[in-house]
């Protein structure tokens, strides 16, 4: 992984699709909550060091959408 000012880019970090803030995901976590905006995301791991947003937690979707309005 490439070293950047923010540390090791991509190591378990994802960018929230709602607020665009990057946040760290616990290793092997399947669900993570953005600390900045509170949206919940399902997480997958293309490799053990790289996290990716898989999709929303659909059960929380309606509640979050309403809040977004």
């Amino acid at each position: 992984m490439k070293e950047t000012k923010k540390g090791k880019e991509g190591l378990g970090k994802v960018r929230c699709l709602n607020c665009f803030e990057r946040f760290e995901v616990a290793p092997r976590a399947e669900i993570a909550t953005c600390p900045s905006c509170g949206w919940e995301w399902r997480i997958s791991w293309p490799n053990p060091k790289l996290a990716k947003i898989r999709g929303p937690v659909w059960e929380a979707w309606e509640k979050l959408q309403t809040r977004g309005e």
């Binding site: 880019e9 991509g10 293309p46 490799n47 790289l50 990716k52 898989r54 999709g55 929303p56």
Partner: peptide
């Protein structure tokens, strides 16, 4: 990161962000 995700799942990975 793009290549590492593509290597695992191909262009189907795009759906995760766009549908979300």
């Amino acid at each position: 990161k793009f290549a590492q995700i593509m290597q695992r799942w191909g262009t189907m990975f795009i759906y995760g962000a766009t549908n979300s």
